[in-house]
Structure formats: structure tokens, C-alpha cells
Nucleic acid binder design. Structure first.
Length: 318
DNA sequence: AATCTTACCCGCCAAG
DNA sequence: CCCTTGGCGGGTAAGA
């Protein structure tokens, strides 16, 4: 939700609307519980709620994190006060989200009766048994349902949910941007993120183009990527171009340039490599062209960008 | 900054 | 009839 907050803030259009409608910033992330006493989490971590639910009369988005080792016993002894409060918020128009086993809490509340939902694969059995009235779509990574699509469950990955919410509140472009940044960061850190996992949920129904995007994400360094991508896809170039733009909103080359520049940004932020070398690393032999493009996309020259942002990524990753 | 090559985009239109 | 595809041709801008 903090990421969402950031995305909304940096989405100028949305931000202006927000500022004019209320004086204070609308999005505030709060951890709430029945009391402000620390909540014992798994791995011995304590969570300190910012506020009690009894002091919070309305909210826009509620998120249930997964509950470790969720069992019948835990569900039977659920906290009625929280359930009542969430139901009330939902009736007032709040969006209620949950990922992984958190989805069972929504089902337990009865919010999902007769509606679709998804959950982590380890909870499919218990889900089916306890909530036959919920239409469980365990193969989907994200399911929106309910009136106004205000009930959102995801199978496990929090990033799916975050990207979905960002797309919804700050626009698809903001989500794509965040997704790209994180994809590359996670790649750098050797962490696995399926590029497709978010594209699935960003109303991109074109599987072939998704594959192409995945391929591009790994091969954008090479020259003439677009024609190569066309070849790999097996489509005609005319059809490929058309469908790519239809599905992503970008032309293939513009999309590739974004990938390259995002990658270059990361390099500038976390390394001391010379700018020419970075340009070459992301696929630009001609450094002057690289500088031009970088300037155009980011509004800053590479060196200015480095001066401004060096170190910031490290902070955020923590 | 100027120049050159060609990769890429897209409107148009016929065909499946 | 509607929708998608694919070839053509030419203009634009990507990139050396």
C-alpha cells in the first residue's frame, strides 16, 4: 500500500484531483487492529498497529495479509469485532483485498458468498470444504469481484495486488512503470518474478504478446530486437505491431526503449560505471544517441540522474 | 551538428 | 456483416 501511495503521488493527474478534493493527502497507510497493542507475527516479529479500528470510521482500501498456518481452529475463533468493522467499511464503499490465506478471512466473513475468489494453492482444500458457496478459481492469480469490483483476492504474490491497485487508482501507466522498475530490480537481486504475472492482470489478454514481452525483457540489449521479437513470435510484423500496441499501449520499439532506459537508470543508481558503458550494456553502441534518448524519457541527462538518485534504490529495497 | 542507412510504424485495403 | 490478418508503400525517427 505504500507503493500504491507513492504511485498515486507521482501520478500528476490523479494527484491534482486528490489535492483539490481534500486538503490533506488522501492515501495514508495504517495498520489497524482492535487495540494498539503489538500483534505477534510469525518469525517473532511484532507489528505495532497505528490505530484501533474503533477510532477509524471510514477507509478506502482494506488489505488482509496472509495468515501463516491458517487453520480451522483459527478461523473458528475469528475476531468478531474486526469482521463487523470490515463488513461495515465494505458497505460504506471500501475496497477489501486479501492475498493468499487472507482470502479465507473474506470468505469467513461471508463477503464472497456466491462470488469468485482465489487463494494460495496450499489452502485450496480447506477453502473448498469450508466455503462451498464461494466460486474458487485457484488457477487465477488475481480475481476482482463484487459490486464495483471492490473485492479483490490474489493467490499469493502481493505484487499482483499492488500492481492491480496502482493500475486502478493511479492508472495503468503508473503500474507498468512500477512493474518494470521492480522486474529489473528483482532480476538484479536474483529474485524471481514472473513478468507475465502482472501482465496477466493488467487486462492484457493476448498471451502471445505477453510471451513477447517476457522475451523482450530478457533480450532488449541486442540490436534490432523488434524484428527479432517478431521472428520469435512467429507472427507477421504487421500483425505483431498491431497486437503489441493493442495489448500494451506501446509500440514495440517504445516499449523496448523503456526497458532499456529503466535498466540504465538502475545501473546509474547503483553502480559507478561510466555512462557510455551503461549505454552499451543496455543496447546502445552510440553513446550520444543513448544520452539523447535518456534525456527525452526521464527529463534528465544520465549524469544528472545519477547525481540525483544514486543511493535511493538501496534504501527502497530494504 | 550533420549525415547516412534502414528499422520501424501505420494508414490503406484486400482477403480470410 | 464484423473482426482479424497480412502485404504494400512511404514517411519518420532510430541508431551508427
Amino acid at each position: 500500500l505504500s507503493l500504491l501511495y507513492r504511485a498515486v503521488q507521482s501520478s500528476t493527474e490523479q494527484y491534482r484531483a486528490v489535492q483539490s478534493s481534500t486538503e490533506q493527502s488522501v492515501f495514508k497507510t495504517k495498520i489497524v487492529s482492535t487495540t494498539r497493542d503489538p500483534v505477534a507475527c510469525f518469525a517473532g516479529i511484532n507489528i505495532f498497529p497505528h490505530q484501533s479500528i474503533f477510532d477509524l470510521q471510514n477507509t478506502d482500501i482494506i488489505y488482509f495479509s496472509p495468515v501463516a498456518k491458517l487453520s480451522d481452529e483459527i478461523l473458528d475463533h475469528k475476531n468478531q469485532e474486526i469482521m463487523t468493522w470490515v463488513r461495515k467499511m465494505y458497505q460504506q464503499g471500501a475496497t477489501v483485498c486479501a492475498s493468499g490465506s487472507g482470502s479465507l478471512i473474506l470468505a469467513e466473513m461471508g463477503l464472497l458468498d456466491g462470488l469468485e475468489a482465489t487463494t494460495h494453492w496450499t489452502y485450496v482444500d480447506i477453502y473448498r470444504r469450508r466455503y462451498p458457496q464461494v466460486i474458487l478459481c485457484e488457477n487465477r492469480t488475481l480475481v476482482q469481484t463484487g459490486e464495483g469490483q471492490k473485492l479483490v483476492t490474489t493467490s499469493g504474490a502481493w505484487q499482483d495486488l499492488v500492481l492491480y491497485l496502482i493500475a486502478r487508482y493511479a492508472g495503468t501507466e503508473a503500474a507498468i512503470q512500477i512493474a518494470k522498475i521492480f522486474l529489473i530490480q528483482w532480476n538484479l537481486d536474483n529474485l524471481e518474478l514472473s513478468f507475465a504475472s502482472f501482465q496477466d492482470n493488467l487486462q492484457n489478454s493476448d498471451a502471445l504478446i505477453q510471451t513477447a514481452q517476457k522475451w523482450l525483457a530478457q533480450n532488449f540489449h541486442q540490436p534490432n530486437v523488434v524484428s527479432a521479437a517478431v521472428h520469435v513470435s512467429g507472427l507477421t510484423s504487421r500483425t505483431f505491431n498491431r497486437r503489441f500496441k493493442q495489448a500494451t499501449g506501446f509500440t514495440p520499439i517504445a516499449y523496448t526503449q523503456n526497458l532499456r532506459i529503466e535498466q540504465a537508470k538502475i545501473h546509474l543508481e547503483i553502480t559507478d560505471k561510466p555512462i557510455d558503458a551503461i549505454g552499451a550494456a543496455v543496447g546502445y553502441e552510440d553513446s550520444s544517441f543513448f544520452r539523447l534518448l535518456f534525456q527525452r524519457v526521464t527529463g534528465l541527462t544520465p549524469s544528472a540522474y545519477r547525481r540525483k538518485f544514486k543511493g535511493s534504490v538501496a534504501n527502497n529495497v530494504t
